[in-house]
């Protein structure tokens, strides 16, 4: 009886654990093993502890790695820049339009990712009003273009992942105690100071969640580069996809995926450890 009762928490954990083992540990193991094999489809793959799969593919595709992080980073930055005011407006200024606006934020999800991205080809094509406008204000040179450039890929990533930024930000802002903002004002902080000293630090968990949810999938994305990018704008996701689907070099594809994952994980831990937790604590400069 007591033993059974003591086991209950573990039983409750079981579905989660099984999920984790089934979809995380086992595939992880297989992929780790595969990434160290050599061979081909005809000869089969043998485990030869081919660590050169890692060294070679990293040095070979460092450009695409760096580019992926660069594009994802810039897109995440823009998502934050656009998403924060948007989430702020929805949370505080939208009034009875709040639900409608939230719906509008997630509405793009009702069409497929691919279709959404392809729609941006029309928005950014060489003769589109957007591009003509950018040309008149000299943001784009007269003989220049937007589609099939890095800018288009970043714009696509920003557009596609914006909801992942807005939703956690909205939740954080909505949870923000309005009375704290009044308390700030009461204590002589202007609107700007209130924002930087109170709103921003208190919504930091939302910002961090938003950055993670945006940056991680953006760094591994290949769809935007495929449809909106031109030549020499492939991201590491495109390389992995081509290695896997076209060249059928499964070990290299696995090694690259693993490397991407490891880099993101390490960056993440650093980020949370340093930037993240400190920002979370909202450390003011010491009062002493």
């Amino acid at each position: 009886m007591t033993i059974r009762r003591r086991l209950i928490p573990y039983w409750l954990l079981a579905p989660g654990l099984i999920w984790l083992v089934l979809f995380f540990v086992i595939p992880m193991y297989y992929m780790g093993e595969l990434s160290l094999k050599t061979g081909s489809l005809e000869t089969g793959y043998q485990l030869t502890w081919a660590f050169e799969n890692y060294t070679d593919s990293i040095s070979e595709y460092s450009t695409q790695f760096i580019r992926a992080f660069w594009y994802a980073g810039v897109a995440t930055f823009f998502c934050l820049l656009i998403g924060y005011p948007l989430a702020y407006a929805i949370a505080f200024k939208a009034g009875r339009w709040k639900n409608l606006m939230l719906f509008a934020v997630v509405a793009p999800f009702f069409t497929t990712y691919l279709i959404r991205t392809i729609a941006w080809k029309t928005i950014l094509d060489d003769s589109s009003p957007v591009v003509s406008f950018l040309k008149t204000i000299h943001l784009v040179p007269q003989d220049g273009r937007v589609l099939a450039t890095s800018a288009a890929v970043i714009a696509g990533l920003t557009y596609n992942f914006l909801p992942f930024m807005v939703l956690p930000l909205f939740t954080a802002l909505e949870r923000l105690d309005q009375r704290l903002l009044e308390a700030g004002k009461d204590l002589y902080a202007s609107a700007t100071q209130t924002f930087w000293r109170i709103t921003l630090p208190l919504t930091m968990p939302g910002i961090i969640a938003g950055i993670l949810l945006t940056f991680i999938p953006a760094a591994g994305d290949y769809v935007n580069a495929t449809f909106l990018g031109g030549t020499n704008q492939a991201m590491i996701g495109n390389v992995i996809q081509s290695k896997y689907l076209v060249v059928n070099d499964y070990p290299d594809a696995a090694a690259l995926s693993f490397t991407l994952m490891a880099i993101i994980l390490v960056a993440l831990l650093f980020y949370i450890k340093f930037a993240g937790s400190e920002a979370l604590m909202g450390e003011e400069e010491e009062t002493r």
């Binding site: 308390a183 009461d186 902080a189 109170i198 208190l202 909202g282």
Partner: peptide, 19 residues
């Protein structure tokens, strides 16, 4: 505006800054 007035408030719910 509130932040320019020579008043201070002790709020019903305290409204201490949690961070």
């Amino acid at each position: 505006p509130a932040y320019k007035r020579p008043t201070n408030t002790v709020f019903q719910s305290y409204a201490l800054f949690p961070h």
